[in-house]
């Protein structure tokens, strides 16, 4: 739900402020790739209505966000591709593909794609955090958006702890990816919490 909330928060921000300054479209592009790699089983595996519905929502909303930021005025007029410049193609996609192949539990396309999507998701926030560091001042709704993006994976970790003790569920790849992903947020969370605590605007060092 936190993940869904972060997407809805971003959609609301784009519609309300009609601007995507401070928002990284490259991060959304990474997430679109993550979802496409991971949700291929939509075509051949039915787990539950909830599971299928959420996969469709995540894929469609992410592509819609990209469309808004890249091609739909007035939002796209405020998008600066030179500022949002983290070269994720070689820095993130490459290593995720290699790691996905090496660490896949079995060398089948779905498993390799799933594993690569876990590694890619764990670092997909980087373009967003780097863009915010350049801008330093973080607008309120953007701060909430990034905070929920960091929080959702932390709640997966809590669920993984529960599932390990309740049903012996083991998911080494997911666990490691989740720890990396949450770890990348820790310093943002610190500044976000401080800005909330002291009631000041969020400014990154």
């Amino acid at each position: 739900m936190l993940h869904l909330m972060s997407i809805l928060l971003l959609l609301w921000k784009l519609k309300k402020s009609k601007s995507c300054v401070g928002i990284s479209c490259r991060m959304q592009e990474c997430y679109a790739i993550v979802f496409c790699l991971r949700y291929l089983d939509l075509f051949y595996q039915f787990i539950s209505v909830y599971n299928t519905a959420m996969k469709v929502v995540f894929i469609s909303s992410t592509f819609y966000l990209i469309f808004l930021m890249r091609f739909q005025p007035p939002v796209s007029a405020t998008y600066d591709r030179t500022a949002d410049s983290f070269p994720y193609e070689q820095y993130l996609l490459g290593p995720a593909a290699v790691l996905g192949f090496i660490s896949a539990e079995e060398w089948s396309i779905p498993e390799i794609f799933w594993t690569a999507s876990i590694w890619l998701e764990s670092v997909s926030i980087l373009p967003q955090l780097i863009l915010l560091q350049q801008l330093r001042e973080v607008e309120n709704l953007t701060a909430e958006f990034v905070a929920t993006m960091g929080a959702y994976r932390f709640f997966y970790i809590l669920n993984w702890i529960y599932r390990y003790f309740a049903e012996g569920y083991v998911n080494w790849i997911g666990w490691l990816g989740g720890i990396v992903q949450t770890g990348l947020y820790v310093d943002f969370f610190y500044y976000y919490a401080m800005s909330k605590w002291y009631g000041q605007k969020l400014v990154l060092p």
């Binding site: 089983d41 539990e105 997911g174």
Partner: peptide, 10 residues
């Protein structure tokens, strides 16, 4: 069916 490990998480 049990041989295919389905990823049941999003």
């Amino acid at each position: 069916e049990e041989d295919y490990k389905a990823h049941d998480e999003l």
